[in-house]
Simulated assay, not measured.
Amino acid sequence: MQFFSRSLAQAASLTEVVPGQKINLKVDLILGHDGTWSKLLTAWKNSKFKRAPGNKVLLTIDHAYPAPTIQERVLQQELFQISKDKDLRLYNHGEGVLHQVVAEEESLWPGMIIVGADGHVATSGAFGALAFSLSPEKLVNPLETGFYKFTVPEIITISLENQLQSNVLARDIALYIIGSLGQNIKGKAVALTGSYLEQASIASKMTLCNLLPEAGVSTAFVLLSREEAEGEVYCIDVSIIEPMIAVPPAPTNVQPVKDLAGKKITVAIIGGCSAGRIEDMIECASVLKDRKIDPEVTLIVTPASSKIANEMDEMGLTSILRKSGAVVMPPGCGPCPGKHFGLLSPQDVALTTTIRNSPGRIGSEEAEIFLASPLTVVSSALNGVITKPE
């Protein structure tokens, strides 16, 4: 057996597993946040919050912090109390968005089994972890038992070869994959390998694993060795990829940025769980230094964590961003969930590094949301129109 099948078999105490087989995985880490745990708490009350001994649970308050409504504040207090009572690890002081906090604070290893009530827990696949998204209601069973009842998916391998052009980022690769292979990878586990990943930063690997769930993958992860490739193999020469953009109403509706060049935008958003890491901030600051964004554009920048925010301050990046006209938000999800700061009006056209562009995602259902890389977003914010980065 190769890495994926072998890891599942070990976690299920079996000698082997095959696609379609129903297994019971021993869970190493359970994740959640204020965006989904209100529903989970309602379902979990039925067992009086029974929790399996030794269960490791990590929660963040990142979707609406500080609380924009009374209801959100009540939920935050409920999460604090349940975390205290049940010994859950809670990050409730603005430490950042869940997936970045997990990467910074937890020990993640290849084959580790993670489940969480969020659509993008596969971000941890950058470290080789096998992370699966569950609905809040379905996460209750792992909380109570320590196991996840799971049907083994088919697996495919995507081999990313060669190096990127200078105006292309990992986010463009992710958009290219979900746009060109969306139907091929839906419902499957996706293993990533290739010469590009052998030199890519951990932040770039996190960006790739973070966005692929928008194509409906079961999970996505980076292989330590291409010899561990499993299932059908797709080879992509990343050197031919150009800046890409997802057009509403779906992240899988992808085309080259040049096809939309010149379209007016009113809001630009950079950061959060997909593109709020320090290399993203360095990229943006290098473009914005000694320049001003278009006067009709609101540029919102959200560091993925407080550690990244502190590093931005130490490097002088925060000052560069603010002087350009950008608004630098507290660490967390930022406008992405549509819960507070940065909501869109019916007239807004937003270009963003967030993870979803469905109608109403960030406010009005009539607003247009386009997804792109940080480099494309910041270049467009300068010009006031969608711009292919130099």
Score class of each variant (00 low, 15 high):
Ile293Arg: 08
Ala126Glu: 03
Asp118Cys: 00
Met315Ser: 10
Tyr65Phe: 15
Pro136Trp: 02
Glu137Pro: 00
Ile308Arg: 01
Ser201Arg: 04
Gly96Tyr: 07
Ile158Asp: 11
Thr219Ile: 03
His33Lys: 00
Ile240Met: 15
Ala64Met: 10
Val217Lys: 04
Thr207Tyr: 01
Glu232Pro: 03
Thr353Met: 03
Lys258Asn: 04
Cys284Lys: 05
Ala350Asn: 05
Glu137Ala: 12
Val287Asp: 12
Glu104Lys: 02
Met244Ile: 06
Asn310Ala: 07
Ile269Phe: 14
Glu296Pro: 00
Leu160His: 12
Thr252Ile: 15
Ile293Glu: 12
Asp34Asn: 14
Thr252Glu: 11
Val222Met: 04
Val217Phe: 07
Asp85Val: 10
Gln10Glu: 15
Ile282Ser: 05
Ala367Leu: 03
Thr353Tyr: 08
Glu368Asp: 09
Ala189Pro: 11
Gly272Thr: 11
Ala126Cys: 07
Lys39Thr: 14
Val287Phe: 09
Asp259Lys: 09
Gly231Cys: 14
Ile61His: 09
Gln165His: 01
Lys258Ala: 13
Pro213Val: 00
Leu192Met: 11
Gln165Ser: 14
Glu16Phe: 12
Leu90Asn: 05
Glu198Thr: 08
Pro19Cys: 03
Leu375Asn: 06
Val115Gln: 03
Trp44Leu: 11
Lys39Phe: 10
Thr193Arg: 09
Ala129Phe: 09
Tyr148Lys: 04
Ile320Pro: 02
Lys339Glu: 12
Gln77Asn: 15
Cys209Ile: 07
Ala372Lys: 03
Phe341Tyr: 12
Arg73Gln: 15
Ala261Cys: 07
Gln255Arg: 12
Ile114Gly: 02
Leu288Met: 02
Leu181Lys: 12
Val121Tyr: 01
Ala200Gly: 03
Val327Lys: 13
Ala229Asn: 10
Val297Asn: 04
Ala350Met: 08
Glu390Gln: 02
Asp280Trp: 08
Glu72Tyr: 15
Ala350Pro: 02
Cys333Pro: 03
Ala215Ile: 10
Lys50Trp: 12
Lys188Ile: 08
Gly119Lys: 04
Phe49Arg: 14
Trp44Ile: 06
Phe147Val: 08
Gly146Thr: 12
Ile202Gln: 14
Leu299Ser: 08
Val301Ala: 10
Ser47Gln: 11
Ser324Ile: 02
Leu169Pro: 00
Glu366Ala: 14
Lys39Ser: 15
Thr36Lys: 13
His93Gly: 01
Lys22Ser: 15
Ile355Gln: 07
Thr193Trp: 07
Ile202Glu: 13
Gln10Pro: 00
Asp85His: 06
Ala275Pro: 07
Ala304Tyr: 05
Tyr65Thr: 10
Ile158Thr: 11
